[in-house]
Design a protein around this nucleic acid. Structure first.
Lengths: 233, 233
DNA sequence: GAGTGGTCTAGACCACGGG
DNA sequence: CCGTGGTCTAGACCACTCG
């Protein structure tokens, strides 16, 4: 039962996914090796390799040298979140972006911040609070700490006009970071800015960005009730 | 100024990332084409291609035929979330997993559910409520609707012992899905189950899974205060 | 039209890790 | 040990799209 020749890696991927989907190959099953699939499909092994690597990256296949390729028994769902600059996120859905710098000062941060950024508790950081608006309504409240020792020009940056995120992206290199999502309640100090009641549930993102071993910036962003972060699965 | 020969695609990727990082190539800049980089690095073009494709996938490069490869000016951060089965998420951090089926019945769902799943409002669905425990303490409260027409055997599934998620993964094929994250407050009916106060902020995930054009299941999971979903950036 | 990335191929060597 | 996936190579053709 030789099927049609599959010439490109996306066709191979589709066929493999189809076989998994119709349970030709069930969760936990060992599937044929690359060489066998290549000869069955009538293509080069590297084409099969590309297809299987792609599927494995999505979590549906487990691949190990010598052990072969298996259909994942408990496929770990992987969702890729795109986290654009706030301005693009808002303009991308056809709304008008607004930005408002609330405060900007150099302060000793709370210990929670300096600890997370692995700084000594008496290091002063640039502290920025800003509000992002969509169609003139509050969209997100940003609370950011920046290490001016890591980002030299930041004390002179025109943060009244451009959001710190955008300025940093174009002026401060970084190597990696962490992001966390959670829920909290609106404090009395934040609720009016977000246009909600004290105690309302807020979606929170917290980001910590590093340049090598040095923390660049830590930011906590609050979103008003009703905000959803969505993605395909 | 010929550097050392770079033999594998990961070295090439590292070198390209380094040049971007030190601003040899700045945001918006056009970088040399694959053939030139290949000869500079002393490797095959396909090796350079692999490296640049990988970087582009992370959002740091924009590639277009004929236009060439540019350093992204506003790199969209991409975070890949791994969403394992609840049991593995809990056991993965060394805690004891517990599962408790709260209720299971066939009902007409609220219109919000049937609409999201694109069903007629009078279709009956299997409704499941369950509690996931970590070290005997509430970890997540699951509220799920399943279309038994799409998942035939589900009415007889042993959902007292195995979570619906795990059973579905191994028995119900799906092609794609959507996931959303948000925040809400604990209702009086849910708070005791989650071990928190009414009105406490809860992290929420909502998933909708499809098999082709038919909705398989829709699930809403509430996490108690303090829960964070984390990932590398 | 022509330059650039996207991909395929056939063959080769190698690293890992199961048995 | 030795089978399997991981990768590299040189060459080729093609698709897209900018100018």
């Amino acid at each position: 039962m030789t099927g049609p020749v599959l010439r490109d890696w996306q066709s191979v991927r589709a066929e493999v996914l189809r076989r998994i989907h119709v349970r030709d190959w069930k969760p936990g099953d060992l599937i044929p090796n690359e060489a066998d699939l290549a000869s069955e499909f009538g293509c080069a092994r590297s084409t099969v390799n590309r297809a299987l690597r792609d599927i494995a990256q999505s979590g549906l296949l487990d691949r190990r040298r010598k052990a072969g390729t298996r259909v994942a028994s408990n496929p770990v769902a992987r969702a890729t979140l795109s986290i654009p600059v706030m301005r693009e996120e808002i303009e991308g859905v056809g709304r008008k972006y607004g930005y408002q710098l609330l405060s900007r000062s150099t302060e000793i941060p709370p210990v929670a911040e300096s600890a997370a950024m692995q700084l000594t508790p008496d290091d002063a950081l640039l502290h920025i609070r800003a509000l992002h608006l969509a169609d003139d309504r509050p969209f997100a409240l940003e609370n950011r700490w920046i290490d001016p020792g890591v980002v030299p020009g930041v004390t002179d940056a025109p943060l009244e006009n451009i959001s710190a995120n955008e300025w940093l992206l174009q002026n401060a290199p970084y190597t990696h970071g962490e992001i966390a999502f959670s829920a909290t309640v609106a404090q009395a100090s934040d609720a009016p800015l977000l246009g909600c009641d004290t105690g309302a549930p807020l979606f929170v993102t917290e980001r910590l960005t590093w340049d090598g071993t040095r923390a660049v910036t830590r930011v906590r962003i609050l979103f008003p009730p009703g905000y959803q972060m969505r993605t395909a699965l």
